[in-house]
Each structure stands twice: as C-alpha cells, then as structure tokens.
C-alpha cells in the first residue's frame, strides 16, 4: 500500500467565467492531518468540493488511492472511501438523528459491518445516542456538527474531508471537535481540514497549505508555518488571517 492517499495535481475549478482555483497541487499521505488555510473566498472549500465530486474540475488530476477520480460523480467517490463533511454541516434537519446516520451508511462498502460501525459512531458521540429519535434540526450547532461527522464516519472512509468544522461553534465545543479530529487520526483516518481558525488548525495538523486567490501561497510543516505566522503577526501586523 503506497503512502500517498490523495494527490491533487494542478487542479483548476471554474464557476462560469470566474476561476476559483488555479493549478493547485496538494498531496496527502496516509495517517496525516493536512490543513488548508486562507482567507474567506480563497478557494479552500472549492478544492474540497472538487475532490468530493460536487463541482467539476476544469483541468488537472485528482488521484485517490492510485486511481483518477476527477471524472467521477460525488455519489461514486464517497463509495470509494472518501467522505466530505460539508461546510455548514448540511444534516437533514427533518429526519431523525438515526436516519441521518442510516443515510451515511449507504456508502459503507462492508454492509455486514453497518451495525458495528453505527455502535462505534454512537459511542464516539454519546449525545447522538441520547437524541437518536430527535429531528436533526432540533440539535444545537455543536451537536449537528457531531452528527455531520458521525454521518460521514458511517461509510468508514479512509480519507475524511472536513470543511470548517468549528464555524459558528462555542469555544468549548470547538475544543471538543479538534480533540475528536486528533482522535480520528489516531484510529487511522486521514484528514484534510479546511479552517479559518488558523492557530488551532496549525496546532493539530502535520502539514498545511496556505491558499490565497485560488493558488497555493505557501506550504510546509505546520510547526514551521506556525512560527512564521507568529512572526508576521508580531512584526507586520498581518497574519495568515488569524
């Protein structure tokens, strides 16, 4: 099994005449947490949506587990073990918590493991077990984020894409979510994280890419970027948008 799990090669994404992402290349190895950082509108979410198949790649290659996936639709990509937790959580508000999880399990490749996986997810998020019969729309923002992550985990993905998981959550819940991400990696899930919370993201990630205006502005080990971000903030008064 090769170390390289995902390879984004010169990805270009256009929305009509607007180029949202221009020739971005990102690599993700197994077991890594890779952060994509950058200001609002820099193109981070677009990169994740292109990898997950929700928006088409105008050019470039997306290679997941050694196979090109840039022509596959979203519903086929998730069945290969690449799950996206979209921005804004996007749980199904009128459906119950357990039905949301059932839908997450549709893409599970090992059908016989479904019950066991559901138990694992409910063990990971005890609050979801307590509220399993409740409509997802009645959960708090933090609980909805947990449900969105739990729903993605129902397919036992080898790569989990998280788009702004801390957005709009109380600091204490943000702590919980970040701890959870670290825990998921320890259990063998590779993670690509898009975050505006730069400092937290650099704390838990191994490597990071800073995206600006649709291109990779810089990349490197998170510890290194963290140091340079501190320096920039201290001396120049501008951060990586911290």
């Amino acid at each position: 099994m090769s170390q390289r799990l995902l390879e984004i090669d010169d990805l270009v994404v256009r929305y009509g005449p607007i180029v949202a992402v221009r020739e971005v290349s990102v690599n993700v190895d197994r077991g890594e947490i890779v952060a994509l950082l950058g200001a609002n509108g820099a193109g981070k979410s677009t990169i994740l949506n292109a990898v997950a198949g929700l928006v088409p790649a105008a050019a470039g290659r997306l290679v997941f587990e050694g196979e090109e996936i840039q022509r596959l639709p979203a519903e086929k990509i998730v069945r290969r073990g690449l799950a996206l937790v979209p921005e804004g959580r996007r749980v199904f508000p009128k459906l119950s918590v357990i039905d949301n999880l059932r839908l997450g399990g549709v893409a599970q490749r090992d059908r016989s493991s479904l019950d066991a996986v559901r138990q694992q997810v409910l063990d990971l998020f005890p609050v979801l077990r307590e509220r399993s019969g409740q409509a997802a729309g009645t959960l708090s923002g933090g609980q909805q984020q947990m449900l969105a992550i739990g729903r993605a985990l129902m397919s036992s993905p080898s790569l989990l894409l998280l788009d702004e998981p801390s957005l709009g959550l109380a600091p204490i819940i943000v702590d919980e979510i970040f701890q959870l991400i670290v825990g998921l990696r320890e259990q063998g899930t590779t993670i690509v994280l898009v975050e505006q919370n730069v400092h937290r993201a650099l704390e838990i990630s191994d490597r990071a890419y800073v995206i600006a205006n649709g291109v990779v502005d810089r990349e490197g080990p998170s510890a290194q970027l963290r140091a340079s971000a501190e320096i920039e903030r201290a001396y120049l008064g501008i951060g990586v948008s911290a």
């Binding site: 997950a52 198949g53 929700l54 639709p73 979203a74 519903e75 086929k76 998730v78 069945r79 799950a83 996206l84 979209p86 996007r90 749980v91 199904f92 508000p93 009128k94 459906l95 039905d99 059932r102 839908l103 997450g104 549709v106 893409a107 729903r151 397919s155």
Partner: peptide, 21 residues
C-alpha cells in the same frame, strides 16, 4: 433506504449525493 434517500433529497439534494445516493 431508497425511500429515506428520497426524503433526504427533498431536504438537501447535494448532501444526498455525498451519502452515495
């Protein structure tokens, strides 16, 4: 599951695709 997928699609079509439907 098929029926649940339809209810889900009525709420959020794109998110339903992310479920593999």
């Amino acid at each position: 599951t098929q029926g649940l997928g339809m209810l889900a699609a009525a709420e959020d079509f794109q998110a339903t695709r992310l479920m593999g439907i």
